[in-house]
Amino acid sequence: MRRILVVGSSGAGKSTLAGELARRLDLPLIHLDRHYWRPGWVAPTGAEFRAEVAALAARPAWVMDGNYASTLDLRLPRADLLVLCDPHRLRCLARVARRRWAHRTEPRPDLPEGCPDRVDLDLLRYVWRYPRRSRPRVLAAVAAYAPNLPVRRLRGRRDVARFLDGASKRH
């Protein structure tokens, strides 16, 4: 495994898992939020971001976390494995709140400078709706762009621990 894509709801543990995978497997870590957002939470144009993601995905090795459905067509065909972090939405909501509290005075390492962590109604709606709206889109994109791509769905801490243990042993 040289290119691992990690997706899931906000608060699902994507960034934490991606960081640990990158460390254990000695692979470069790419947090897509750091490449998407500009200071002040300013979004790039779609073309700018697609070009940047295409360049990132073309690299020979990475662990990449982030959803950004509009770029799955660029990332999925390059990935060796898709990891879907998929805990219950209530757990995700609790983690979003805990993360916001933990980073109230210091920036999150997976966000760019000038983008302090925030929780708003749109984010909470996204987390609540993820299982019905976004997860099916991810799986449809896999079927469309990388039908033979292995998918590991991690629903809880035990799944994550087993997955990390197995990844370490294979490396």
Rank of each mutant, 00 (worst) to 15 (best):
P109E: 13
R108E: 14
R78P: 05
V42N: 08
A140S: 12
L164P: 00
P107A: 14
A79E: 10
C85G: 01
H171M: 00
R137L: 14
A57V: 08
M64C: 15
R75T: 06
R95G: 03
H31F: 03
R157M: 03
G156C: 04
R34Q: 15
S134P: 00
R99P: 00
T45A: 09
A47K: 13
G13C: 05
G19E: 05
H88S: 09
D110A: 11
D86I: 00
P147M: 02
D159Y: 04
M1S: 06
L121I: 02
L93V: 07
A58F: 01
L76T: 06
V142D: 05
R133H: 11
G66I: 11
S70C: 05
T71P: 11
R153C: 04
L81D: 09
D159H: 09
W101A: 15
Y130L: 01
R118M: 07
W101S: 13
R95Y: 07
R104H: 09
D33M: 12
D86A: 14
C92R: 08
R91L: 15
P28N: 10
D80S: 13
G114N: 12
L81M: 12
A144L: 05
L32R: 14
V119A: 09
D122I: 04
R91F: 03
R137N: 04
A22Y: 06
E20I: 11
R23P: 00
I30D: 00
L124E: 07
D122V: 10
T105N: 14
L164T: 12
S168M: 01
P131N: 05
R104Q: 14
P39I: 12
H35F: 14
R23G: 04
V142E: 02
R38K: 15
L74T: 07
S10I: 01
G13H: 09
S134I: 03
V119T: 14
